[in-house]
Amino acid sequence: MALTKGAAQSSRRVLPGYRLTLGYTLFYLSLIVLIPMAALFLRAAELGPAGFWEAITEPRLVASYKLSFGASLLAAAINSVFGLLLAWALVRYSFPGRRIVDALIDLPFALPTAVAGISLTALYANNGWLGSIVEGVFGIKVAFTPLGVLIALVFIGLPFVVRTVQPVLEDIETELEEAAACLGASRWRTFRHVLLPLLTPALLTGFALAFARAVGEYGSVIFIAGNIPLVSEITPLLIITKLEQFDYSGATAVGVVMLVFSFLMLLVINLLQSLSTRRLGRNP
């Protein structure tokens, strides 16, 4: 998504629609995104710096940041590993049902989060199909613990790593690996030193996307979390809790923290993407 700089010819004059599209894009962006966000920031600003700081550093909130961010990081990490395996299997191997698996990867994206939440809870509760097995074998409870939060976030983030790694993997030419094999490298060495460096930017992008998506997730987590203060409360739930107590400024303050964080995450993602473009010598 890097931009072509330099070659700014007088194309502005050749193609029509600059003012129209610029005007409309800014108008629509303002209407849908910028004005509502401004409302959020201004409302939070009413608290004043001290009040704002106090509102966003309550112990219960700090605990929820740890859970939300920690579980999201872990979920994104798990998705990076297994997403890579899955992408590899989909691109490199042929097996019955491959097409179906490929199509279903996007399910968490298309399935409403509330539906995901109740079906994951039904599965991973200790009387559910999977929850009973896990508890029987390992003696750990899944649903209604921080582990349940992790499960929901893994589900939510699964498509992102697969979908960013898959096209890059498809595009890597076999000649590279053939050359490595001719030079006597083992498969592992080839993967480690030739393929992995090429895949890393895509992996990182997928990781960041999965992470950004997971931090704000509400619908699917709420059913499976257990919601015990300081233990299994996620940050978006606390926003709802504050609203329930008619504490609008407190809710908006937390909202601002999350929004700023999202913005930073996106900057990182864009950076990673331009890095990956440069790395692969792609010409935008």
């Binding site: 995104v33 959020l40 931090v215 926003i239």
Partner: peptide, 13 residues
């Protein structure tokens, strides 16, 4: 940006 904003915050805005 809207991609990574928590849905709860969207409603609140």
């Amino acid at each position: 940006l809207p991609f990574s904003v928590s849905p709860v915050i969207v409603g609140l805005m």
